[in-house]
Design a protein around this nucleic acid. Structure first.
Lengths: 295, 295
DNA sequence: CTAATAGTGTCTTTAAGACATTATGAA
DNA sequence: TTCATAATGTCTTAAAGACACTATTAG
């Protein structure tokens, strides 16, 4: 079978035994984790439902570069693991939780994205139920914090000829915690014509966010928004038992707009199974509790 | 501003000037290109429309490993470029065309996916109009060929309890050219439960296809199928002028099923603009020619 | 009783699916 | 005239949007 010989007369086995990797330059490859969860905003009224907020976990940098700025948790991929395994390892280091939903997002590869050296970032999105997650206390000096995420897209320029379109969109990202408020603007430029399609993301300002992580977070929010409407991905953000109104709130906070109750339940109600339990002590009619239906 | 000093008393500038990358092991990073185009099958009847086929470009390996097998075109990312730039460079080397549609697919990172050494593959999908593309004659001994793509998905096992689902799907990939016929089976295993979601792709057999490229091709076909229904991505496969029936044929060959004319035109007709021209000499009523509408 | 949410009914609007009918050019 | 595709009309079915009405609890 594998007795084919190459131009040097070697079989594959002989070739591999003699193989020595060349000495050209290689990048470091890191995984960066965009860990999302949903948390309650404090209620201002005893009988009003608490509002929900989308949160992302960031870590304050304890050394250069970007000393004091906030960055996504992450780390380098090690020689005997896949990027998925590295992502799971980082996730376990950062949060006590295991077995979260995990999805590869994109590989960011600008050779100058890290001022130290050539580092590619293979980014992952993780979704967690906040009631089950514990942020591990920083084992070193760094501190981890949940930031409320807000991302607004605004079309700022459109240039359209017979055979091309150019669109400029501003993505305004605001991240806020009790103590800190970070923000960034990313300009998304889309040029499409018969001579090609180009889609570039450039960070035009970034206040308090390390590296190109504002771009990665914006990309993750867009992915989450896109997938929530045609998959059951949102269920990964829900606790064991939840009401359909809570599920609707999660959709609303991610999509950034209000949804109408009846059609929401028609469309997404099948993602959940009713239980015998209901809520109580809420100052109004009790609500049926549901659990995730595995489709 | 950036006069912050770290625990060693260095400013960021001083830190970066003194920075030396560590000597730990790093992966090589390659880009692999899944270049799709649509070509006509030879017509068997002078007045019948030619059928379409989805094609992918492969290159026969001239050295170990996988000597004689067929692989995706690709190459290593160089120190001063992004993976996108590397993909464009490879694309220009392989095909004369410039400015094709290009989209990052996924980064495959199994540390043993290349038997020589640690190589990650950042894969890209390119879409080309076959009337404008020229496959460059191999500058070295290798030969490049277009292969007809067929991918069938078959559910082979489903295991469902109250709080988990396991699904096994077989992806059967067949690639055929005039001289060669390659095939592979990929087992896609999906395990979803409250303790996590795991989605693995394993190549269970691969005949004539190098590395894990069968997996990459299957992934690309799935991405293309998914995006064709909600974007105008298919238009990148069309020539300057085309009929709506040709556009429908492209959808049909990618999705692997027949579509009904009237609703197809209602839904996708807005992706094209009518011109004054029509087809002629085809043995039946002439058809209006359209050009891409840039949305 | 009241404030507030729960849950459902139904009318309207829009899109998708499935055929059927008429139109037209080349051999 | 015939073959084969072009182009569109329309009936049916299903989904989405919008709103209104009734039901229930704690206080």
């Amino acid at each position: 079978m594998s007795e084919l010989r190459d131009k040097n007369g070697l079989t594959e086995k002989e070739f591999l035994a003699a193989y020595r990797p060349g000495d050209y330059e290689k990048p470091s490859v890191a995984v960066d984790m965009v860990i999302f969860t949903i948390m309650d905003k404090d209620a201002d009224n005893y009988r009003r439902l608490p509002e929900k907020e989308l949160k992302v976990l960031l870590i304050q940098r304890g050394g250069h570069p970007y000393l004091g700025k906030w960055a996504l948790p992450g780390g380098f991929v090690e020689p005997d693991e896949t990027t998925e395994q590295a992502a799971e390892r980082e996730l376990a280091e950062e949060t006590a939780a295991e077995g979260l939903y995990l999805e590869q997002l994109y590989t960011f590869s600008d050779p100058h994205r890290d001022p130290r050296t050539w580092v590619m970032s293979c980014s992952y999105m993780a979704l967690a139920d906040s009631s089950r997650i514990n942020v591990r206390a920083g084992d070193d000096a760094r501190s981890a914090e949940w930031f409320t995420v807000s991302l607004e897209e605004k079309l700022i320029e459109e240039n359209r000829t017979g055979d091309s379109v150019k669109k400029k969109t501003a993505l305004n990202l605001v991240l806020s915690s009790a103590q800190n408020s970070l923000c960034a603007e990313i300009i998304q430029e889309q040029c499409r014509s018969s001579s090609g399609t180009k889609n570039t993301y450039k960070i035009s300002s970034s206040d308090g966010i390390a590296f190109d992580h504002a771009k990665i977070i914006a990309y993750a929010v867009q992915r989450l928004r896109g997938k929530i409407e045609y998959t059951d991905i949102a269920l990964n953000l829900m606790p064991e038992l939840f009401t359909l109104t809570q599920l609707q709130q999660v959709y609303e906070v991610i999509l950034g707009r209000e949804l109408i109750k009846a059609p929401f339940r028609r469309k997404y109600g099948i993602l959940a199974e009713p239980t015998e339990k209901t809520t109580s002590d809420e100052g109004h009619r009790p609500s049926r509790l549901f659990r995730r239906r595995w489709l």
